[in-house]
Design a protein around this nucleic acid. Structure first.
Lengths: 185, 185
DNA sequence: TATTATAGGGAATAATCGTTTCCTAAATCA
DNA sequence: TGATTTAGGAAACGATTATTCCCTATAATA
């Protein structure tokens, strides 16, 4: 079932929610429509499950990506590089389920909006925590406002995802986060 | 016809492309479906026209917003503040046609992708120009890379639009651009 | 004035949508 | 082994979709 959900994630990322028909889903998940409706209440429930799975998989990958960082600043840098990798080339074009969700569904589906808001707040809190770690280990100046600066970085990462839909190169993206690191000075 | 297009813009911003039926359009534009199809080839053509109109109206407002700025840095600051105003509260929730378009259509409609790419590149070039102005009038240090730094700012503004869909306050958004201005140091 | 374009409205159309229903085959339990 | 539950697939459902066709009222023309 989880492999099927992974296929669903891919389709939802590429086409968005409204543009993917359950016919698209049956093709991608290799399940007949009857089977999908036996496992999920409706198409929206498939999307919700896909969204949750996408979120936890992505969070775990992010945590792995920063693990090797020695200092708070180093971990921030690795976190931003993680988004660079996700935002360029073919993978970048595929897009992000969170930003797609924010753009497409947040306006008129309060429950899904709740999920998006939660995902973004979690990212924000995660980055703020890394900044605080950096302040303690001396890699980030003590005058830096952790919450507000983390918010800048969330904007940056979401913006990278948008730009990535238009097919930018890794070099462009990497140069962008290089400069953005100045907000930690 | 232009007033009708403005109504269409509003619906497309709130609901996205696929989630707005031509029934929604007839309601918003106060035109019967027959009349819409007399003026436009199909729903996609309505969207394209709405997108173009949205873009020129927005560009003009942006230019007006920065007009009063004395220096390049000042104009950059005013440009970012313009995005703050667009990204908070109810207007922020309504969303941006460009980011919605990037998220929803850029993957499988090459022509529309072209429009999105163009809009983002234009924003980038516009901000890069302001940075160059700042370097000349001394308000921005000469070592600043105009293109790359402008790209950071495009990411920031697009990110603000995404965050704005979740209903942030003006204060949060303004604090964010305040810190982001550090990239001009 | 008489006639002809034209703009717009509303019903009809075919296709596609999400969803349900029913059937088959495999697995589980007694 | 035999009975029963379960997972999955194909077809059919009504609703909704984008689009077209035809009609009416108004404006332009001669």
């Amino acid at each position: 079932m989880d492999e099927a959900l992974d296929k669903a994630i891919r389709v939802f990322r590429e086409r968005g929610y409204h543009a993917t028909s359950v016919n698209d889903l049956t093709g991608a998940m290799e399940l007949a429509s009857g089977s999908i409706y036996k496992a999920f209440r409706d198409k929206r429930a498939v999307f919700l499950a896909a969204f949750d799975r996408y979120k936890v998989a992505r969070d775990e990958k992010l945590r792995n990506a920063i693990r090797a960082g020695k200092t708070g600043r180093d971990r921030i840098c690795k976190a931003l590089s993680f988004y660079v990798e996700a935002s360029h080339g073919a993978e970048g074009r595929r897009g992000c389920l969170v930003v797609g969700c924010a753009a497409e569904l947040a306006t008129f589906d309060p429950e899904i909006a709740e999920h998006v808001t939660g995902a973004l707040r979690k990212n924000e809190a995660f980055l703020a925590d890394l900044i605080r770690q950096g302040r303690e280990d001396g890699s980030i100046p003590p005058h830096i406002d952790a919450e507000a600066t983390a918010r800048v970085m969330v904007c940056l990462t979401q913006g990278l995802r948008i730009l990535g839909k238009t097919g930018r190169t890794r070099a462009e993206m990497a140069g962008t986060v290089d400069i953005a690191m100045k907000v930690l000075a």
